[in-house]
Design a protein around this nucleic acid. Sequence first.
DNA 1: TTAAAATTTGATTAAACAATCAAAAATTAC
DNA 2: GTAATTTTTGATTGTTTAATCAAATTTTAA
Lengths: 198, 198
Amino acid sequence: MAKEKTFISEARREQILKATIDVLNDIGYVKLSLAKIAKHAKISTGLISYHFADKEELIQHTLSYLIGAQLEFIEDRVKREADIYQQLLAYIKATLTYQYEHVENNVALIEIIFNARTEDNIPYYKLNEEEEDPLYLRLENILAEGQRKKIFSSDFQPKATAILINGAASESMLLQSESFDLENYQQELIKMVTKIVK
Amino acid sequence: MAKEKTFISEARREQILKATIDVLNDIGYVKLSLAKIAKHAKISTGLISYHFADKEELIQHTLSYLIGAQLEFIEDRVKREADIYQQLLAYIKATLTYQYEHVENNVALIEIIFNARTEDNIPYYKLNEEEEDPLYLRLENILAEGQRKKIFSSDFQPKATAILINGAASESMLLQSESFDLENYQQELIKMVTKIVK
DNA sequence: TTAAAATTTGATTAAACAATCAAAAATTAC
DNA sequence: GTAATTTTTGATTGTTTAATCAAATTTTAA
């Protein structure tokens, strides 16, 4: 059923998608409208409707793009490491670094996750993805493998620790200000996680 | 400048506020409207405008109420404990328990924090309250006092640890499903935090 | 009991919205 | 070069929105 898309169509779709991310950063999901996106992209409103079935589909594609970009960034850095403990550190560092280096992507991601809803009217933040979320699974696997190889202590549950690490990372993204020292927090977080897993 | 409010006025305002929380749970902030709140409360739309200057003020009051209720719940349970380590455990347990026992309040809180914006168009989730947020301060003080009294190790930063604990607690609230075992997570979280602070 | 004040209604207003569509413009294919 | 196809515009449609307001109702006070 996958429609063939022309080169122009793909380029336009990406342009609209990027404009959506920008507008989400500027005014947030609540005030987001096709008219505002069109104005930002300097195109007509009808053109968005031509390339995306509806607003829902546009948001859906933007969400997929944002999740994919974050996953790729983190996965790239984790797989460079052979040692399992280094993989854990790479995961933590990459998560924090991505949030810091791609603030616009992160803000857009938050705006969509906490606002957009599925067809059944369930908000994405309530959607219990923990079982499927590739990022969660990746972290859980690192922790479990570390235990299997006796590199990590057996005195923690990979799932609970994965929740803690991801929570501690997400929380810090909400605290970005001048007074917040990311470098220091990263060191401290690694110290704390090491106490848990070693 | 504090206007005297009559008994009727106070009761009506509370009714509207509670209806707002219900409607936020049902349809979320994005689709929230005065008409929907009025319908849910079985009153006319004009009555909401009579008791609240505008939608902004209604949301603002609902937010204050929700923050206050959570703070009171947690503070009540923490201050029952004399021992500082028990206070830390009480803080963690109370945070998780509140999220579980008052799901509607929590959902409404999330909906507002991640959607409503200040007059300067800054979303509340970006508002760096960490320095003022009474809950953050309470936790930080428990951790710092434990260090001062040599009950806790001196090998952690109260601020970083407070972020981790609050993050780990918030994250779990997003994962409430049948498969999520709150009791088990609470035990594990306490075990992990104990490794960090002891 | 009655008049003033407070409360409530529901219709109305003007603005913003997503989506549609006919017509124009640009691109592609032959 | 021209016809068919794809892309783009901008006006239009029918909703929904927050807020206002005159009129009706209820409560308060004396």
